[in-house]
Design a binder for these strands. Structure first.
Lengths: 419, 419
DNA sequence: CTGACTTCGTTCAATCAATTAACAAAGTGA
DNA sequence: TCACTTTGTTAATTGATTGAACGAAGTCAG
């Protein structure tokens, strides 16, 4: 009964018109929640008998729909409500943070059934792969679901990833991850298609799905954590770039006079906006104490933000300084992309309006086309939910190809000659 | 027999499967040049009788195909070759330069039938609209084509345009164009759908179609003329941005220390890379003579480039300076988008390798993900051909909706009740 | 130059899915 | 209780695609 086997069972022979209409019905059901056959007929502009017949397939032969009960009558025979069978399969989303590993088990609609988080094993490498698989297994057991029905997996990893080959090229703070074929390892162990992407991209997907960026076609998610990264969404689609480097804005140079000093010099965004840079600035030290005392830069940043919130002039000055660099970088990004929205995430984003106002002031002096600015509404869950969202994307296309999105009547392969 | 009337004549009653397959055939014919019915059957995976029947429609009823002759036998009955009827309708592309107005008349495949160029009337405004329409009319007459068969028009205008409403918000060097509803004016006079877009975007489309960017999904066209503009192509599609400001990189700030000085200060790209800025730099003056002597900045730039090509140290120094700013801007753009290719166009691009090498050197010090760099292969024709290309896009979708790309069986509207 | 073989395209009957029309089912409301 | 609505199914019709057979128009070998 696993989806895998169902794929095999489905005869390829069905002419495509029917398959395509089946898919249309399924999508209508997913969009329009519980809905009657009559409602589906209106929504898809198919005739009632056709809908009945296709629903029959979807209900009993395929198993992707279920009858969910009787609806209110509106003056006639009450409708039989149909629903997408969300438990036809399950999704797993994984967020590999440099400190925390989060795993969620959801149904096909992305509804979270269970989740768990543990400290990331700093050794990285295959140990982490073990950790993920174990936790995923535990979540299946805990919720009493069949792990054979795992349908797709999304993984957000810190650092640089090659989405096509599913490799992690290098991971921030996880020395054990260098050119790790994460996707292949996971697919082998979990028996389901896996997509690996970097954390900023995943966070962007999360915000697009259930965060600040719903309905927004063009936006950028700014991950302001240990480093600075961006997830770029253009035309509703994540844009990853030719070398998977899109959004690596930490390399931006904001001082032509310093461009000769190679990566990481004073002219570069990274030197002014990363948590490291913030925590180790002069003013910052005067707030959080001498360098080296605070092992955790994230904590130092949090302290500075707290001070700023309570009106500490030195802390506000740190934000001012930060905003000049960040704002200029954002302005340059806006000059290139003209997005409708920029979402701030990561530790620095907890400064909230203190940050947004300062950045907006800078940006508005540089470019005329101001985007909307918002703080991530998902916070630390953005990456995890983004991973789930990307698993949903895989599931979507798997369902589509399976049910026959494939255009049109395909003749039986290997057509025999005339003789 | 104009396409317009044909659209009306086509009964909407054809069930969609047939319409959709007709479209598939048409596209296969356009892709695969002259091809037999048997070839089409293989290419589209439709059965021979179906192909015959649909081709019959397309040939005689619709008129979008024509038989073009008999092909070589490959050991059996020789094939009857079919072709897309490129003269089913015509396209017009217009490039409104600040100095030259170019107009081309092409067939539906974008093959240029005739073209003409005249000096742009600096008065701008509706006078220019007249000019365009007149020239277009002349081209129809000169080639003996029926102007009633005009199928789509693309117009590239300098400056800022709102593609959705078809308005020119403001045009560089054309004071008469301020918030001009160019699309509506032209559609009223020409009787065909019109798309208006800015010159950098059109040039990008041109390079995508028949220039350096063929087959490239993610690239940026840099228009280095009087100002600096970019046409941004992401995922094969032009990206225009939320306020139609995408690619307005002249606003980029490359010197945080100068960000307070508002638009146009020393920190901004525009102040260093535009033809004005180049021609009026100190070193530049020492080559081309005192300021004000050369009315034409474009000519001054050309002089400098010529000098550089012949090894003039001062001219090369101008390029060096330019490359630092341009390279930094490009690097920032690359940090955001990671394109596969950057195409240089406009007057400054005539510096060729002298420019590319210098820019590449700067970019390679700032970001690790170097794109390919190329000089526009279309030169001054990029915008014009881009305008044609965008007209083709319109034509494509017009044909598609007309032939019924619209997904699936649509019930007769206003379905009468059960009674 | 004839006959076997290919390839191209069409004719014809069969198939399959969607539609219309009619009807059964299951309610509301006067 | 009866007229009316809305939902869903059954039955007959329509329309498009297909497979098989066949005619058309060539090549190629002996």
């Amino acid at each position: 009964m696993s989806p895998e086997s169902a794929v095999e069972n489905e005869p390829d022979g069905l002419p495509s018109m029917r398959r395509s209409n089946r898919l249309r019905l399924l999508q209508a059901v997913r969009r329009s929640g519980p809905i009657s056959r009559a409602g589906l007929a209106k929504a898809t502009r198919l005739s009632p008998p056709t809908v009945s017949s296709l629903v029959e397939d979807l209900l009993h032969e395929v198993g992707l729909m279920s009858e969910v009960g009787i609806g209110e009558s509106s003056g006639g025979r009450p409708p039989v409500l149909l629903q997408f069978n969300r438990e036809f399969g399950y999704l797993v989303g994984v967020d590999v943070g440099s400190r925390t590993l989060r795993v969620a088990l959801t149904d096909l609609q992305g509804q979270v059934l269970a989740r768990q988080q543990v400290p990331t094993d700093p050794a990285g490498g295959e140990i982490l792969v073990d950790q993920m698989c174990t936790i995923a297994g535990e979540l299946f057991t805990a919720t009493g679901r069949d792990r054979g029905k795992l349908y797709a997996v999304g993984v957000g990893a810190p650092g640089m990833t090659d989405v096509k080959s599913g490799r992690v090229i290098r991971a921030v703070n996880l020395p054990g991850w260098v050119d790790l074929p994460l996707r292949d390892l996971l697919e082998a162990r979990l028996g389901a298609p896996v997509r690996v992407d970097n954390d900023a991209n995943m966070a962007a997907l999360g915000e697009r799905w259930r965060g600040s960026a719903r309905q927004v076609k063009d936006f950028v998610f700014l991950a302001l954590g240990a480093g600075v990264g961006a997830g770029v969404v253009v035309g509703g689609q994540l844009h990853r770039g030719h070398h998977w480097y899109a959004g690596e804005i930490s390399h931006m140079n904001l001082d032509v006079r310093e461009w000769r000093s190679d990566f990481g010099g004073r002219g570069y965004l990274e030197s002014h906006v990363g948590a490291v840079a913030i925590a180790e600035g002069e003013r910052a030290r005067s707030i959080v104490g001498p360098a080296g005392a605070g092992q955790e830069r994230g904590a130092a940043v949090a302290t500075i933000i707290a001070a700023a919130r309570s009106g500490d002039a030195r802390a506000l000055a740190v934000l001012d300084e930060l905003a000049v660099y960040l704002g200029t970088a954002v302005a340059n990004l806006v000059a290139v992309l003209d997005p409708a929205l920029i979402v701030f995430g990561g530790g620095v984003s907890h400064a909230g309006d203190l940050l947004i106002e300062r950045v907006r002031r800078v940006v508005s002096r540089i470019v005329p086309n101001l985007p909307r600015f918002e703080i991530s509404t998902l916070g630390d869950d953005a990456q995890l939910l983004g991973a789930v969202s990307s698993a949903m994307d895989i599931a979507e296309s798997r369902l589509a190809t399976w049910l026959g999105a494939a255009s049109f009547p395909r003749r039986a392969v290997g057509r025999t000659g005339t003789r």
